[in-house]
Amino acid sequence: MKILDWYILKRYLGTFFTLLLLFIPIGITVNLAEKIDKILVNEVPFLEVFYYYIDFTIYFANLLFPIFLFLSVIFFTSKLANNTEIIAFLSSGVSFNRFLRPYLIGATLICLGALVMGMYLAPSASQGFNDFTYKYLKHGRDAAETKDVFKQINDDEFIFATNFDPKNKTASNFTLENFKGNVLQFKISASRLKFNEKDSIYTLSNFEKRIVGKNSDDILLQHRKLDTVLPFEFGELTPVSYIAETKNFTELNEFIEQEKKRGSANINRYKVVAYKRWSLPVSAYILTIIAVAVSAMKRRGGMGVNLAIGIAIAFVFVFFDKVFGTMAEKSTFSPLIAVWFPNVFFGVLAIILLRKAKR
Results as ranks from 00 to 15, higher is better:
residue 194 K to F: 13
residue 161 A to W: 00
residue 182 N to D: 01
residue 247 K to A: 05
residue 263 G to E: 05
residue 212 V to Q: 13
residue 316 V to W: 00
residue 205 S to P: 06
residue 321 D to V: 01
residue 73 V to Q: 13
residue 161 A to N: 00
residue 97 N to S: 07
residue 147 K to L: 01
residue 218 D to S: 07
residue 168 N to V: 12
residue 213 G to F: 08
residue 113 G to C: 01
residue 97 N to C: 02
residue 17 F to V: 11
residue 222 Q to L: 12
residue 243 I to Q: 11
residue 241 S to Q: 11
residue 85 E to Y: 09
residue 229 V to Y: 13
residue 245 E to Y: 10
residue 224 R to V: 13
residue 40 L to D: 11
residue 43 E to F: 04
residue 182 N to V: 01
residue 316 V to K: 02
residue 290 I to P: 13
residue 74 I to T: 15
residue 185 Q to Y: 15
residue 333 F to L: 15
residue 1 M to K: 09
residue 357 A to W: 05
residue 242 Y to I: 15
residue 107 A to R: 02
residue 42 N to L: 12
residue 64 L to G: 00
residue 18 T to K: 00
residue 315 F to Y: 10
residue 3 I to Q: 11
residue 107 A to V: 04
residue 244 A to K: 06
residue 167 K to M: 14
residue 259 E to S: 07
residue 112 L to W: 03
residue 289 I to N: 04
residue 196 N to R: 12
residue 68 F to S: 06
residue 268 N to A: 10
residue 258 Q to E: 00
residue 214 K to S: 10
residue 128 G to D: 02
residue 24 I to S: 00
residue 189 S to Q: 12
residue 311 I to Q: 06
residue 213 G to M: 13
residue 214 K to N: 06
residue 206 N to H: 08
residue 138 K to F: 13
residue 116 V to Y: 02
residue 263 G to R: 05
residue 286 I to P: 10
residue 353 L to M: 15
residue 174 F to K: 02
residue 143 A to M: 10
residue 104 L to T: 14
residue 63 L to R: 03
residue 224 R to Q: 14
residue 275 Y to F: 14
residue 122 A to W: 06
residue 44 V to H: 01
residue 349 L to H: 11
residue 14 G to H: 04
residue 320 F to R: 02
residue 166 P to N: 07
residue 88 A to E: 10
residue 341 F to K: 03
residue 15 T to W: 02
residue 37 D to T: 12
residue 35 K to W: 11
residue 26 I to C: 03
residue 36 I to S: 12
residue 138 K to A: 14
residue 45 P to S: 02
residue 96 F to W: 05
residue 338 A to M: 11
residue 240 V to P: 08
residue 103 Y to Q: 09
residue 162 T to R: 07
residue 225 K to D: 09
residue 306 N to G: 07
residue 233 E to P: 11
residue 298 K to G: 09
residue 314 A to N: 02
residue 233 E to V: 05
residue 131 D to E: 04
residue 299 R to D: 01
residue 114 A to K: 06
residue 161 A to K: 00
residue 256 I to Y: 01
residue 39 I to G: 07
residue 81 A to S: 09
residue 157 E to R: 02
residue 231 P to Q: 03
residue 102 P to L: 05
residue 15 T to F: 01
residue 158 F to L: 09
residue 266 N to M: 01
residue 74 I to Y: 14
residue 51 Y to Q: 08
residue 309 I to E: 08
residue 10 K to M: 02
residue 247 K to S: 04
residue 245 E to F: 07
residue 289 I to E: 06
residue 353 L to P: 15
residue 18 T to L: 03
residue 258 Q to H: 00
residue 307 L to K: 14
residue 339 V to A: 05
residue 82 N to L: 10
residue 103 Y to E: 06
residue 5 D to N: 14
residue 327 M to E: 12
residue 118 G to A: 03
residue 349 L to D: 10
residue 101 R to Q: 12
residue 172 S to C: 05
residue 348 V to T: 04
residue 325 G to R: 01
residue 41 V to M: 15
residue 50 F to C: 08
residue 109 L to W: 03
